[in-house]
Design a protein around this nucleic acid. Structure first.
Length: 589
RNA sequence: AGGGGAGUCGCCAAGUUGGUUAAGGCAUCGGAUUUUGAUUCCGACAUGCGAAGGUUCGAAUCCUUCUUCCCCUGCCA
């Protein structure tokens, strides 16, 4: 898909182009896997022109916002003959779980990306670097760049100062390195309870950048880690761990979101210190920040998504209304549509809102090309062909044929029968037509798609005056595909399903989850603007050929939109379809 | 208030060593095609680049001032 989509320049591509042009990475070595300066020095010239990484914390499900980052990082690596490392940033044992690891890996592969490149897998875990990180912290302490602080969390907070007030040095700040080192070892050995002490980088308590006011780099957590078990009771903080992870993996461009901009000075400070100590070597990785995705009508906060699931506003993480990758997938999104969306929105440093319709547009553009067509009636009203018996005989079934895809003959034909009674959409009949209406109304002609032109003669009503059936006559010799098909010109085309041969199916009509473009704008509780009609379930009639539908297959239900056979509940015994997105409708329903 | 960022068409977004008519996409609006009011195809769509000054033969690009919005005071990431 990217072959036909011209690549649009962005600030990251410009940076990479400049780096490459300057031969900035010419001396890079690759030790065959993540490692310190010595191990890479002993390796080979790095076969990867650049290295990026996608580093989720395995504490939740991936969503459309992550998709932007995934497409960016894996996409750049692909385009520049580099590699993107799949890395779990699992430095907080209390929040993480293997279940999330599995779902994340699955989501990325589904999106169309992988981490095997240059003959090896690049699936990494921050927890594999705990040993090095511990050594790095020891080095920092020994070199006078870090210390063990025994202030309480509250004392630390107060002494950090605020935006206008410089912080105050901790009373432990200048304790001898040997004392800090001994305490750090005691921390590791489980001699101290959670929260009793912490290792802090020694930088500048008066820095205007609060992240430089002696940030905590190691804390005590007597917790079982999903990968390292009980091997450790001290764990590195993100601030400290992330730059090291990047360096050990020889990442060239460490791309993260805007809120980490203030963290970059520490990122550079840390790597420079470790390079001084010989633990790391140039060229060191650099951090670049881009604006995360803001999508209207969508919420991506982990906490809020969790709330939607836990409080049953939706039916799980893979509910088709959820912006999670599993939700989008079940809704009928394709990986290509999501990739197209990411290409269209671009990458910048300006914090913007993308309208939900852009996502829908990309989806339609992808599905239009590949979805098989089918005729389905979602809101059935019976149509009686009153001259059927005299024309064909009551029990006759008239075979009709239609292309699987109007622009792709090679996809073949589908066959179904026209019978004396068919289902049509209730909205396709108006006893008194509104201006511009071209479908069925008394004395008007329209075509039953792929069948005959019919002339509406009236309707039947119940005691309350509700229309219960539409009456029409077939106009002879107008069957689609026959020489006389165009002898009568009509403006309206009606989709239909044989009343006697059509199959019934459960169809879920999904709509956006919220009624406001920015559900949590201005501190509003997003639950107050949940769309009560985000899911409507109808029993529809579908053409007989859909009987053998495979779960996960996408269709265009003609004149309605794109639908997908639900991957969990659609089976041979029960047809279940999810509406992925409607067709564009310039007439307005 | 201190620090860090961002403001180019309705929504995104190229363009920044200053130099012809400010890319492109989405949306929108015309028109053609169409057995999906879909698709497709043609065409239209910023004398303007947050604002005001200034430098210059020439500025979205340089300078000055102003303005709006976003992020930062977890032993989360």
């Amino acid at each position: 898909m990217s072959a036909e989509t011209p690549v649009v320049s962005n600030f990251l591509r410009n940076i990479i182009d400049a780096d490459l042009a300057a031969n900035k990475f010419a001396s890079r070595r690759w030790g065959g896997g993540p490692g310190d300066a010595a191990s890479h020095a002993a390796g080979v010239a790095d076969p990867a022109k650049i290295r990026t990484r996608f580093p989720p914390e395995p504490n939740g499900y991936l969503h459309v916002g992550h998709a932007k980052s995934i497409c960016l990082n894996f996409g750049l690596a692909r385009d520049y003959d580099g590699v993107c490392h799949m890395r779990f940033d699992d430095t907080n044992p209390e929040k993480e779980d293997q279940e999330y690891v599995d779902s994340i890996l699955d989501a990325i592969q589904w999106l169309g990306f992988g981490w095997d490149k240059f003959g090896q897998s690049h699936l990494y875990h921050a927890s594999d670097y705990f040993g090095f990180m511990f050594r790095a912290a020891e080095y920092l302490i020994e070199a006078g760049h870090a210390y063990v602080d025994q202030q309480t969390a509250e004392e630390m907070r107060v002494n950090r100062g605020d935006f206008t007030t410089p912080g105050k040095d901790s009373p432990f700040r200048n304790r001898p390195a040997a004392e800090s080192l001994a305490l750090f070892h005691e921390m590791r050995d489980g001699k101290h309870p959670d929260g009793s002490m912490v290792v802090r980088a020694k930088i500048d308590m008066a820095s205007p950048n609060i992240n430089m006011r002696d940030p905590a780099i190691y804390r005590i957590r007597h917790a079982e880690h999903h990968r390292t078990g009980n091997q450790w009771c001290v764990y590195p903080m993100y601030t400290f761990a992330h730059p090291i992870e990047d360096a050990l993996e020889q990442i060239t461009h460490s791309i993260c979101t805007l809120e980490f901009e203030d963290q970059r000075p520490f990122y550079d400070w840390l790597l420079a210190r470790l390079a001084e100590g010989g633990l790391l070597a140039d060229p060191l990785p650099h951090q670049y920040e881009f604006a995360r995705l803001n999508l209207t009508y969508v919420i991506t906060s982990k906490r809020k998504l969790m709330q939607l699931v836990n409080e049953k506003y939706v039916e799980g993480w893979d509910d088709p209304r959820m912006p999670t990758i599993v939700g989008l997938r079940r809704r009928g999104f394709t990986p290509e549509a999501i990739q197209l969306f990411c290409e269209r929105i671009g990458v910048t440093k300006s914090d913007t809102w993308i309208d939900y319709s852009v996502l829908e547009g990309a989806l339609r553009d992808d599905l239009e090309e590949k979805a098989a067509r089918a005729m389905v009636v979602l809101d059935p009203l019976k149509l009686k062909l009153t001259n059927w018996d005299t024309l064909f005989g009551a029990n006759h079934a008239e075979p009709c044929s239609a292309p699987v895809h109007p622009h792709h003959e090679e996809m073949g034909k589908r066959e179904f029968n026209l019978t004396r009674e068919v289902w049509i959409e209730r909205e396709d009949f108006q006893e008194v037509p509104e201006k511009g209406f071209r479908r069925l109304f008394p004395d008007n002609m329209a075509r039953l798609k792929y069948g005959y032109v019919i002339k509406c003669t009236g309707c039947e009503k119940d005691a309350e005056g509700n229309v219960t059936a539409v009456l029409a006559e077939i106009v002879p010799d107008t069957k689609s595909g026959t020489p006389g098909a165009d002898s009568v010109k009509v403006k309206g085309v009606i989709t239909w399903v044989s009343a006697s041969e059509g199959l019934s199916a459960e169809v879920r009509l999904y709509d956006r989850l919220f009624t406001e473009a920015q559900p949590d704008a201005g501190g509003r509780n997003f639950l107050e603007v949940l769309n009560p009609d985000s899911k409507r379930v109808v029993t529809a009639y579908v053409e007989p050929g859909l009987a053998q539908t495979t779960a996960g297959t996408s269709f265009q239900f003609e004149r309605h939109g794109y639908f997908v056979a639900d991957r969990k509940e659609c089976g041979a015994d029960r047809l279940v379809f999810n509406r992925t997105v409607t067709l564009k409708d310039s007439w307005g329903k």
